[in-house]
Design a protein around this nucleic acid. Structure first.
Lengths: 145, 145
DNA sequence: CACGATTGTATCGTGCACGATATATTATAC
DNA sequence: GTATAATATATCGTGCACGATACAATCGTG
């Protein structure tokens, strides 16, 4: 392909990636509103529902986010009473993030979210393609990390 | 797959999409820094380099962005003297966005960007897979629009 | 054991995204 | 033609992202 053509929006990978990411976030929003959380807050909960009591750094590694993003985000979540932040006794530099009862109980309400969203696109975007897309994105992430 | 498993980070499509989008933006950053522009500003330029003199709305449709995002973004670009904003004479509600000489000339410096980035990943992520990923993302976008 | 390096979190500033709302201009209906 | 609706952009407030920097706790080395 010509260098000129590569610069066009339609030929770039970066734009559909950027746009699809925002669109998917919007897709989650009405469902997450019922739980009174944002999309990044949902991702943090997903991580904690899998294994509770993580440090800020551990959450950051899983979500590829730095503490300058996480600290204020976690503080907002603490205010909402879905997580608790406590300094580690062993290493006072670390802050341990634990789910509150409210945070734990949100999991039950969240269980239906992935299924509901997949059901919504299944007709026009088959599950096999979702899987292929997921794997390609993971592979790309590996390369970029 | 079990409902419980679907909620795990590793099985969700949304997370690699979100993370890959941010990673790719970071990949562009050192190259865009030389042009003194941000990633969303680059996307606006890509659109204008293809067809100059668009309204805010037309840019918004191409990039799937609302005016509440675009207006401040375009104002920052005007301050940098890479675009010019002028009210349309025919319809005074519309604002026409035109490249300045500086904005036009940036295209020459940007031409190498897509090639350079593709070269960088080619070894570990073949071009065929880039194309497949691009097409899958475009298809997903279609479904979500 | 002292002191410089490293690690973990926080703070600051800037730039998106976007829902909600405002305002001005044009189009439409009667 | 005037009231009303639709359209185009702008404004406001909130919540991310993230580079740069600060700071305290711990580690490593002589």
């Amino acid at each position: 392909m010509k260098v000129e053509a590569l610069l066009q929006l339609d030929n770039q990978l970066c734009f559909p990636l950027y746009a699809a990411s925002r669109m998917v976030t919007k897709l989650y929003q009405p469902l997450l509103e019922k739980l009174d959380i944002t999309y990044p807050q949902y991702l943090i909960l997903v991580v904690l529902w899998e294994s509770d009591a993580l440090t800020v750094n551990e959450i950051g590694k899983k979500l590829m986010l730095e503490t300058n993003t996480l600290t204020p985000l976690l503080k907002r979540m603490e205010i909402k009473d879905i997580i608790k932040r406590t300094r580690s006794k062993i290493d006072e530099r670390q802050v341990i993030i634990k789910l509150t009862d409210k945070g734990s109980s949100l999991k039950q309400q969240a269980l239906c979210i992935p299924t509901e969203l997949l059901e919504g696109v299944k007709g026009q975007f088959p599950l096999e393609r979702v899987d292929r897309l997921k794997n390609d994105l993971k592979a790309l992430l590996e390369v970029l990390t």
